[in-house]
Write a protein that binds this DNA or RNA. Structure first.
Length: 160
DNA sequence: TCAATTTGACCGAC
DNA sequence: GTCGGTCAAATTGA
């Protein structure tokens, strides 16, 4: 996988260009569309910085566990992708998903969905087999009014 | 009163 | 049959 990092970076840069092109063609009055594109671009930036870090590590010293780099996003495309906990994620056809691991400090308390530009509405919660904490399911608040299809799952890690 | 959340039931994938 | 994702009725709070 490590040898493929430069290719991955190229692919993400290419995809980012396409999204930016899409952004220029978006109707400026489409708030949810622009928020979505902005979020996609920020995820590309996070992914690029992570991949660059991996690339630098590979070039410099001994190989390390790649898990240490995943403080940000991990893309999946609906194939046989795995979660970071090793579990397999099912994915609806044609819907792009990714996971983003964030740190929630205890002092501030874990206060549900982070503010990422969307309004989120909780629609379900599940106890996940083997997980210490339940997983919460959120839909974009504009799901019906603005046809916003964004959804997210929030699960506290076993460790923190 | 209305919007958001909770929670048990249902359904599909494996 | 089990597990995860979604639905929808009930509940709660502003």
């Amino acid at each position: 996988m490590d040898q493929k990092v430069p290719d991955l970076i190229k692919e993400i840069i290419q995809a980012r260009k396409l999204v930016m092109e899409l952004q220029t063609q978006l109707n400026p009055s489409s708030v949810s569309g622009n928020v979505l594109v902005t979020n996609i671009l920020s995820i590309f930036e996070t992914s690029l910085s992570m991949l660059n870090q991996i690339k630098l590590d590979n070039e410099s010293t001994t190989p390390k566990s790649s898990m240490g780099h995943f403080g940000g996003s991990l893309f999946s495309n609906g194939g046989s992708d795995l979660f970071q906990d090793g579990s397999r994620k099912r994915c609806r056809k044609g819907i792009v998903t990714w996971t983003q691991q964030v740190r929630a400090c205890e002092q501030g308390g874990f206060q549900g969905p982070l503010d990422d530009g969307y309004g989120w509405r909780k629609y379900g919660q599940k106890n996940i087999f083997g997980a210490a904490y339940p997983r919460a399911y959120y839909k974009c608040s504009y799901h019906s009014s603005q046809n916003c299809l964004a959804m997210k799952q929030v699960q506290r890690s076993d460790l923190n």
